[in-house]
Design a protein around this nucleic acid. Sequence first.
DNA 1: CTGAAAGCGCTTACAG
DNA 2: CTGAAAGCGCTTACAG
Lengths: 333, 333
Amino acid sequence: MGKKVSIRQVAEHAGVSVATVSLALSGKGRISSDTVRQVKKSAATLGFIPNRSASRLRSGRSLLIGLVVNDIANPFFAELSADVEAHASENGYLSVIANTNDDIEKQASVIETMIGQGVAGFIIVPADTSTPDTFQVIRDHDMPYVLCVRDIGDGKADFIGFDNFTAGVMAAEHLVEKGHRTFAFVGGRLSVDNFRRRLDGVRHALARHGLTLPDNCVREGVPSRAIGLAETGDLLASGAEFTALICYNDFVAVGAYAALNQAGRTIGEDVAVVGFDNVPESESLSPPLTTIELYPRAIGNRSARALIDAVNGSSGPHERVYLAPELISRSST
Amino acid sequence: MGKKVSIRQVAEHAGVSVATVSLALSGKGRISSDTVRQVKKSAATLGFIPNRSASRLRSGRSLLIGLVVNDIANPFFAELSADVEAHASENGYLSVIANTNDDIEKQASVIETMIGQGVAGFIIVPADTSTPDTFQVIRDHDMPYVLCVRDIGDGKADFIGFDNFTAGVMAAEHLVEKGHRTFAFVGGRLSVDNFRRRLDGVRHALARHGLTLPDNCVREGVPSRAIGLAETGDLLASGAEFTALICYNDFVAVGAYAALNQAGRTIGEDVAVVGFDNVPESESLSPPLTTIELYPRAIGNRSARALIDAVNGSSGPHERVYLAPELISRSST
DNA sequence: CTGAAAGCGCTTACAG
DNA sequence: CTGAAAGCGCTTACAG
């Protein structure tokens, strides 16, 4: 009951000074256990909620972490965010979330806003065209930050991602095993490190078997259902030969399914399709899509752990963590 | 470049007082345009980022909004959250997000944490078993809050949701139109208002056609794929007669699909299925699922608007907004 | 049009 | 073991 209560009311109620209340509630200082008990009781009866703006201002310590992602409505980032939030919350941190929509200006603006709001550090999925310079403002403020999912080669931060090269190898090896000899790759942009490594992995694995992925069978594009549809359709129209199609992610694969169906190809028989991400939808497709699970939840969890460690001052060299992907084999291959 | 810069450094750089800097940057007070220009220039060159902990402490005004949802990884809430964030961000607000996992204790705890962090107000999808009393602590702090999606009959807050009754009517009318005469309903709990209203809508529409939904054809359960599978299987095993199955949401429908397939029923021919939510997955199912779109993005947007209006002190009676659902007819019916 | 000063609610040396 | 006092970075009457 009652309005906003400050440490002062608690002090009066408990018959001690505000300093004692602060010390008693934080567990610092050598306050007698009797006093601590009385203070806690007063705080509880009054419904005292400490004002973190004040404590942050005074102590510089913050219980807020900033999470900056491309688009939280994308299932991959939604899961990643959910695990960041869960781990942060377990450690008493609250998560501030903002979307960049892959716009580097928006990213700069939300980072600045978050610094102003006093976050203790950042977990960032770098927007397109980000470079280490992009995060100079964070370093200027001596704040820790963890980059994830997209590697921009920033040596001043931890990086948590997945092993794209191995993911590419897995997709290709699986298809070769299934007897395929001609391949195509749709979706993703050359400017993105994840794309290049994934493609390298595919080519590396094919080369081991004396096979190739011809340049005219690689179609770039911002990964989306629409690009999957358009580029796969274009590829088919071009007369390119392939019995196995690797899609940059599951959304692209959904588009590719539509294009292949339109062209009268039977997925899982005439042509095999592999995606990446293992979004929930991939299991419900017809036929269910073979895909590479990249573990967004684990990335979220590891990132939160790395950041909170850094906030707590555990120094040491920055770490680069690449989580191993896993092939989920279904009937599309 | 350089470390944290405060209003004091800006004042020194510009050769004015801190009061003038504050007034100039906020646009309040009658500061000469020359001074304003000079102050802004100094602020920019020094890379000044105002400390919001300090301004909030002093002025009581906050640019933080608290968003409390069940589970941000659920696509429905992910989309809702994305739109809250977008609208908040457009208005200069940052979003603090926390999951409750539908646990009312967790909900109480995150609300308290958020109050401590100084949010200006709340957008909340009430966790299961919430009552208006649950939010007393928010009212005690004179903070505005908007409830959404789940109606708990709290007259002290705005409510933004969808019209469940009409959604139920739509589902039933559509099935009757398609020639169905026997019905079943799977998933959802009687304790949830959305469930009761949706079911009422179904029954109301059926009654208009002299049809009924027998009690033994209604199977409750926490909405999930697993419940859809188990309860639909059970329903089939019980020998209940139905040619049309209404699922509480699309997740339940995915489970129902599996149970119906196992039982050798052909969806879209022997039996029709309708879901609610129009999750991306519903379009990719085989056959594509007829479902009711409930517009989570619009709910997010409206909620953010309502909250920001309330924060800005636009008083007036609390509003209850029910967005009209829309039937998305696909081949499962 | 501008500045000096008080104060928001905490935390933290410092003194006792 | 406890309290008085300073100060974090702002905003805002108040005075001039």
